[in-house]
Amino acid sequence: MSAEADGVAGTYGDLSPAARRLYAYAVERHAFHTAEATSALGARAGAAITELAAAHLLQRAPGGGADRWSPVAPRAAAARALAPLALLVRETHDEMDRLRGRLEALVPAYEAGAALRELNGSGHLELMTDLGAVRGLIAELSAGCERELLTSQPGGGRPLESLEEAIGRDESLLTRGVRMRTIYQHTARYSRPTAAYVERVTALGAQVRTLGDGLMRMLIFDEHTGLMAVPERSGAALVVREPNVVHFMTAAFERSWVGAEPFPATVSPEAARSISDELRQTIVRLLSEGLEDKVIARRLGMSERTCQRHIAEIMRAIGAKSRFQAGYLLSPSPNDPKETP
């Protein structure tokens, strides 16, 4: 709000009791001198006169000198006080119309360029590196989504800020009848904000499942447009509109969906043990592949410290004294019948 508007708002705050008494006094007499008000209401009359004059509720009485006042009707006072705000609103609307006109003048050029990209295929893949632009595109695609949104979110529990941004958008989708399926990693089950979010969207018909490993961060809108995370570039996204690539992304999601487990409202001790066992098995596999702790932790959506604790337990269980020995002991034997073609 401008300084001018702030001034008007401050003027029209609640009147003090003294100002209210003085206004009633003034209305009864039509006009009065400051000395008369002071005699009737006491020492606060001077401050009350200043307050009422600032609120346009008192004016100098015509022909009565600088010390004679008369009341102003509240509606007339409001008209005077709101005049600066009304002017500000008109100027703001005019500026909005000018800005809208300047931007909408570019619509034909944008549509022509988009049509050309569609013809030559250059618009089928687009790298976006600005996080704000990525969020804006997600909001735009969500608003236009008509049938189904598929989401794959690796990395464990989602940040509270991301969930707060997503909940309104996703609830709007679901209330429009758009189908929504989401896959998290198992570790997301232990995130209270994520569990609360899941509870809200599933109540509206969303389906949410979890998987241990192998997720790719992506969103797919109506099997028409996909967004994929860009490795080692936080906040960047690859926008995919090429039909064959979007079909591949959808097929990858469906394979993960079949192997995933429903996200429960609560995690029972039995389910927690089952998930922990599956996580340890996955850690064993990744250890045998020679991956570092931080890489395994990122793959499984857990902190590096938690991952190291699991690795230490596994090493104790197999009697390994080093990661190298653990990797050797956990590697499949060349004579393992499971490795025989």
Rank of each mutant, 00 (worst) to 15 (best):
A3V: 13
E4I: 15
D6G: 14
V8L: 14
V8W: 15
G10L: 15
T11H: 09
A26W: 03
H30W: 11
A31W: 15
H33F: 04
A40P: 01
A48V: 00
L52E: 07
A54F: 05
P62Q: 12
A76T: 15
A78M: 14
R80S: 15
R80K: 14
L82I: 07
R90F: 06
H93C: 12
G101V: 01
G101K: 04
G101Y: 06
L103E: 07
L103H: 06
L106Y: 09
G113I: 09
L116C: 08
L119K: 10
N120V: 06
S122R: 00
S122W: 03
E126W: 05
L127V: 12
M128L: 15
D130I: 13
G132E: 06
E140C: 10
E140R: 15
A143V: 12
G144Y: 10
L150D: 10
L150F: 03
T151F: 02
E161M: 06
S162Y: 05
A166R: 07
I167L: 15
I167D: 04
R169G: 08
R169T: 08
L173A: 07
L174I: 13
R176T: 02
R179K: 09
R179L: 10
R181I: 03
T182P: 09
T187V: 03
T187H: 11
E199H: 13
E199N: 13
A206F: 03
R209E: 00
T210E: 07
T210Y: 01
L215P: 02
L215I: 03
M216K: 10
E223S: 08
T225F: 01
A229C: 09
A236N: 05
A236T: 07
A237H: 04
A237Y: 02
V239K: 07
V240D: 00
R241K: 02
E242I: 04
V246P: 00
A251P: 02
R255L: 13
S256G: 13
A265Y: 00
T266Y: 05
S268N: 03
S268G: 00
P269Q: 04
S274D: 08
L279F: 01
I283N: 02
V284S: 11
L286E: 01
L286A: 02
E289H: 02
I296A: 05
A297L: 01
A297I: 00
H310K: 05
H310P: 03
A312K: 14
E313H: 09
I314A: 01
A320W: 03
K321I: 10
K321G: 14
S322R: 07
Q325D: 15
Q325G: 13
L329Y: 12
L330F: 13
E339V: 10
P341R: 10
